[in-house]
Amino acid sequence: MRGAKLLQYLILGAILVVVPLVVHSGYVMQILIMLAIYGILVLGLEIILGQTGLFSLAQAAFYGMGAYTSALLALRLGWPIWLATIGAMATSALFGAAIGFPVLRLRGDYLAIATLGFGEIFQLITNNWNSLTRGPMGLPGIPRPHVFGIMFDRTMYYYMIVAIFFIALITAFHLCRSFLGRTFRSIRDDEDAAEFMGINITKYKILSFVIGGIFAGLAGSLFAHYITFISPDTFTYTDSEMLLAMVFLGGAGTVIGPVIGAVILTLLPEVFQFLVQWDMFVIGVIMVLVMIYRPQGIWTSDIRWPWSRKDPALAAQGK
């Protein structure tokens, strides 16, 4: 079982390594890079929403926080990019804790709307604090990373970002499988019961926001230094909705599910070009349909593939 899983990942990894050697299309590379960035971003939301059950509509704001921090540190203070990235992760984590603190008492859709409010405040600030962010004009000329004086081209950036994505994926896997993930899930399942079982829910909810923020900050920084220009309209409420749709479509509560959701929803408008303006509409329809017909999402932990062995739970029951 473990071997089969490892093999699947090795095959996937091999494909991703080979792609740039075979496909010389900037367009395909661009999509793959964006997929990896969105992948990291939804992994963060998965920890907040999927594991801990905190309905956050601020993930795009965490993402934007990371992008702006990294860009500003590199542009204004001349920090090296790797340091700016760490700064971005730290800032988004702080932002996560700052949101986490006050909104902890709220549950369910109240939390959703409060986080939405924080996201909008982020929008207002980036749009109006002209001296720092240049407002809606955005920040151009964000440096790309370079080694030994050679600037990263798209292919190099691609390899770097795929590697980082896999590190993020493995980290998320490890985290969710560990005692920490279990603690998060106990809060999601029944936070009162969790508290009676000795879980300090305040601490772990903040921690969840912090970890989700770190992922988002990383994604934001990678995005900023790839695209080299950022403006507030990349980090709006609509983007948070989209991330939400990715997590729910793929399967909240699983690690791979949200990534699959991100792949599907990122590719959707690319594959169906005629959908150009309809993409958000289609996403809305998908969200409603998924909630009605398959609220657990496409990918669930109890999916049994034909090649996987007998369900251990059923085996224990002697069936």
Binding site: R182, R185, S186, D189, D190, A193, A194
Partner: peptide, 11 residues
């Protein structure tokens, strides 16, 4: 608890 409160998604 009076009405059992196990974590439903966990083993």
């Amino acid at each position: 608890f009076q009405n059992i409160r196990l974590f439903p998604t966990m083993s």
